[in-house]
Simulated scan of single mutants.
Amino acid sequence: MSARPLPPNLSPEEYLALEEKSPVRHEYVDGIVYEMPGESKEHDEVAGNIYTALRPVARSRGCWVAFEGVKLWIPQLHRYYYPDVMVLCDPAETQSHIFQRPCFIAEVTSPTTEATDRREKLQAYRSIESLSTYLIVDPEARCVDVFHRASAGWQTLRLETGSVDVPCLGFSLPLEAIFEGL
């Protein structure tokens, strides 16, 4: 990750205690804690657009859309992340701010997060059994890299027009909606 690391070798419990008191968000990767960089107006606009488009569809299907402020815990990798947008449909998800079983994740990339989104997070997110779709959204290039879980493994598609299928919601998310206002 590109942000500066904090004290090394924290336990997940120590990380959660640190995060509870911190005025800024941090991600946790197997004992190492990284301060998250600030977002741009374009980043917030795109993440907000995705949330706004998915929320009514998710609610109608008994799902919930998380927007930037909740954590994703990947226990097998000992990682806590703050995805930009997650869709959660598993009724077993009962906590209010830490989740483990999203069916959809979107990360809005920037020059400071692109390498992490494309390598570390891609690898980590693909290990989540419930996840069917991971988007890496590039507001600068106005394109979306879509990673879909298929029976033969993960498939990748780059879109500059059209829409993204969100199978867990039975919905297609138009790229026009993602980039609206830019």
Rank of each mutant, 00 (worst) to 15 (best):
I128A: 06
T94W: 03
P102M: 10
F179A: 08
H78A: 13
P91H: 03
E93Q: 12
T112S: 15
V87Y: 00
E129G: 13
V146G: 04
Y80A: 01
R101S: 03
L173G: 04
C89E: 00
R118L: 14
F99A: 05
Q76K: 15
S132F: 14
C168L: 07
L131V: 02
S130F: 11
F179T: 05
Y125K: 01
E140N: 13
L77D: 05
P75T: 07
Y80H: 06
E140C: 14
P75C: 11
V85A: 05
P111C: 09
E120Q: 12
R101Y: 04
A177Y: 11
Q76L: 14
T112G: 10
E93V: 11
G153D: 00
Y81W: 07
D138V: 02
T113G: 05
D90I: 05
C89I: 06
Y125R: 02
S163E: 12
G153I: 06
E129C: 09
T113Y: 09
L135G: 07
R158V: 12
L173V: 10
Q95N: 12
V85W: 00
Q76H: 14
I136G: 03
P139I: 10
L175C: 10
C168A: 12
A141L: 15
H97K: 13
Y82I: 09
R101D: 03
L122G: 00
Q100S: 11
Y82C: 06
D165Y: 09
E160F: 13
T113S: 15
F147P: 01
E120R: 14
V164T: 09
V108T: 09
I128T: 09
E120T: 14
Q155G: 00
H148Q: 13
T113E: 01
L175D: 02
I178F: 05
Q76N: 10
F104S: 01
V87P: 05
D90R: 08
C168K: 04
F99H: 10
F99Y: 14
T109K: 07
F147C: 10
H97M: 11
R126E: 07
K121D: 00
S96L: 15
E140V: 15
R158P: 00
V85Y: 01
L88S: 03
P83R: 09
E129P: 06
L159V: 11
M86C: 11
D117K: 01
R126H: 07
